[in-house]
């Protein structure tokens, strides 16, 4: 009887135990350890020589020019990728939302880049963006447009990386939006037609609100993902030229052998920025998102 009662109380904890162990080992523990490292001047050769230095790493972060440079790059990159992806995927999704065979084929085509490794994608684009022999400049020239330096100029490098990321990710978001659009009952549009609604108003007052949960999801997921951009930068530019594409994660990566404590502190700052941004999104937009 008594045993039974104890079991009653313990049961839920036992049930979620395995999952909690996983979360603790792979999420909580690394996070705490990251936080812990950020307070040390860490010695890689002899960890016993590591020294607790309090908030010094953080003070250093906020007083260093190159941190602000990479933060700015990351913000521009994120802004560019998020805006372009949302706009283009919305346009394509509206175009593809009619259920025809042709649209299914086009949609599969647009989705394909998403299943290719970003490393391969980056390499292919690296080659296409080569200023002298690359495909892109060939196209520009045959159209009579001036060629671009793409990745090799500090003016265009970041934008070039944005293009690649958008191209790589767009199929996935088109898929989400097409599903959302197809989920809207055609009767709603018919009712709107009977209400003498203009095309623009139908889109603005009916379509957009109805897919707002998916748009919001994309916004959050993409912002978080873009803030952590790494692979494209690593492969295509290595942060250059002249730090023009140095983003936060790549910046952290740069200190992996020289200053673990400093890298850890930057990681914590990145986490905080993403957290704050997500909260702001929820705070600003939750009233505009219509869950049914």
């Amino acid at each position: 009887m008594k045993n039974n009662k104890v079991w009653e109380i313990l049961r839920p904890y036992v049930m979620i135990g395995p999952a909690m162990i996983g979360i603790f080992l792979f999420v909580i523990y690394p996070m705490i350890y990251l936080l812990y490292l950020s307070f040390f001047k860490y010695n890689l050769l002899n960890s016993a020589m590591s020294k607790y230095i309090g908030f010094s790493n953080y003070i250093q972060i906020f007083s260093r020019e190159d941190f602000y440079k990479s933060l700015l790059n990351t913000v521009i990159y994120t802004g560019g990728v998020v805006t372009l992806t949302m706009l283009i995927s919305l346009l394509i999704a509206v175009w593809l939302s009619k259920r025809t065979r042709m649209n299914y084929i086009v949609q599969a085509g647009i989705f394909t880049p998403h299943i290719i490794s970003i490393v391969s994608v980056s390499l292919v684009w690296l080659w296409m963006m080569e200023p002298n022999l690359g495909f892109l400049n060939y196209v520009l020239e045959s159209l009579g447009l001036p060629p671009s330096q793409w990745l090799q100029s500090s003016k265009t490098a970041l934008f070039s990386i944005i293009i690649v990321s958008v191209w790589h990710g767009i199929g996935y978001y088109v898929l989400i939006l097409v599903a959302a659009l197809q989920g809207i009952s055609p009767n709603i549009y018919e009712a709107a037609a009977l209400d003498n609604t203009s095309k623009f108003r139908v889109f603005h007052r009916i379509t957009l609100p109805l897919i707002s949960p998916q748009m919001f999801f994309i916004l959050i997921i993409m912002t978080i993902g873009s803030f952590k951009v790494f692979d494209t930068v690593r492969i295509m530019t290595g942060g250059g030229p002249n730090n023009a594409t140095n983003t936060l994660v790549y910046y952290i990566y740069g200190f992996r052998t020289t200053n673990i404590g400093y890298a850890a502190a930057t990681g914590v700052v990145l986490m905080a920025i993403i957290g704050i941004l997500t909260i702001i999104y929820f705070w600003l937009l939750s009233r505009k998102v219509h869950y049914q």
């Binding site: 009767n187 709603i188 009712a191 709107a192 007052r205 009916i206 609100p209 109805l210 707002s212």
Partner: peptide, 15 residues
């Protein structure tokens, strides 16, 4: 000049 009440209402869910 026609108004219709739909079998499944078709009211605008977000308004």
């Amino acid at each position: 000049g026609v108004a219709m009440v739909f079998q499944n209402y078709a009211i605008y869910p977000t308004m």
